[in-house]
Amino acid sequence: MNIFRLAGDISHLLAIFILLIKIWRSRSCAGISGKSQVLFGMVFLTRYLDLFTSFISVYNTVMKVIFILATLVTIYLVFFKFRATYDSNNDTFRAELLVIPIAGLAVLVNHEFSLFEILWTFSIYLESVSIMPQLYMISKTGEAETITSHYLFALGLYRGLYIVNWVWRYYTEQFYDWIAIVAGVVQTLLYCDFFYLYITKVIKGKEMSLPA
């Protein structure tokens, strides 16, 4: 554990709770892609199966459980409790076009051909693109509430900080995991456009609207 990874994890946790609090306080999930949340749910459930097989640390276990539960609660709020506010007409990204090729890729390109390892690889690949339905939705409606943009910023920052963590680990522990690194770089690149808009608009107190 180093400061970059800890900061990344906190940023990730913050993102998830910003979203939950936004939905809970406003009693609405307007502007939120339920599809992205389902993809993140799949990411956590397939990656954290090792909760049952290997113990790493109390920190690790607690964080995994929080990520899974918080994401399941978010999915419940979007699709059940506040379903009437869910903007499904604008949440039209074809998520299956991500999941199916990624499942194939995880079977073909992995560290080890075993069920848990393939599921872990699937979750890493899937996480890298899980935000696409949300970004697509924002580009379609052309706007995002300020709190939604804080959510996206914290979520993008998390994987960016993980990259710094991997550089640090490479030099201090000679540790690297190229699957995580390549997917993590792709994931961070997806947020670049958004980071630019966030810094130039939201920080200056303007609502975020995307050019059509």
């Binding site: 790493i56 964080m63 872990w120 993980y162 540790f175 995991d177």
Partner: peptide
């Protein structure tokens, strides 16, 4: 033990 045996990151 290979590096990927334990995925210690979240």
């Amino acid at each position: 033990c290979s590096e990927y045996d334990s995925h210690d990151e979240l």
